[in-house]
Amino acid sequence: MVAVKGKKLTKIYNGIKAVDSIDFEIQQGESFGFLGPNGAGKTTVVKMMYCFSPVTSGELRVLDMEVSKNPSQIKNLLGVVSQDNNLDPELSVEDNLILFASYFNIPRKTAQKRARELLEFMGISEKSDALVENLSGGMKRRLVIARSLINHPRVLVLDEPTTGLDPHARHLVWDQLRYLKEKGLTIILTTHYLEEASVLCDRLVIMDRGKILEEGSPRDLILKHIGKEVIELGLPQETPIDPQELKKRLGDCCHDYRREGNFLYLFTSNGQELLENLPLINIPFSYQLLRPATLEDVFLKLTGRTINGQPD
């Protein structure tokens, strides 16, 4: 069954097309990512899904309901983790959850029980009486995720779930999201961390400037555009590269290449063989590394620029 479906979905604000006629379909039980740099339009897409931003044109259906017509019903079935930790700083950790449950008309007793379970699940139960402002950034984020699960959502929408977290906290969040995914929860997330997308998403779209550039599983996208491996080479200053020559000497095992400044990236599915052929191109490389291909390579190839991996 389809969880979310967008057809020619467009969002214009202040005269700018933030989302430009995109089509996508997210199945229930799937973990789906919108990957792209800041300003790609991915946050706008999810804001339209959780009925925050009105759709300019096109169609957007969530759990078979039109977002413009049934916002309350849709929001009742969604869990939302927005970009900022908009917790209630005047209340304790536990009260944050219980109060949030009341917005869903969940009875207090049920809410208390559910809150305890969720705090346990997110590993912050020892903080349940603490004030929110005394929590670390990672704990706040986990509390926001706990809060988004209070109504047993059918779809969990996360807008950059780990932006600004340190690597340890990020991995904790990933662990819990992966657990939820294995339990069959539909997860939709936006991210500009390629690693996050690889770890969490069954399928993703790469967005740039309001458009979808590619769609597929992380694995397939990498294989399709890059191959299995990448050889990174450091070039001496201003070495000219002749594509014809490169292709001739390295043979078929190098699918494609890319140059970024003084770095040369060779895309291959047989790294060992390519390594052995390297001396044939007669360039004294300052550095060489054979590594698995990543989504970052795909992104680079598709957009011609690196994804902005800096936290906001």
């Binding site: 925050f52 019903q73 927005s82 917790l87 209630d88 869903f104």
Partner: peptide, 12 residues
């Protein structure tokens, strides 16, 4: 505190 934003992600 941006709690209006949080509230309107619920049925409110």
């Amino acid at each position: 505190h941006r709690i209006f934003h949080a509230m309107i992600t619920t049925p409110l």
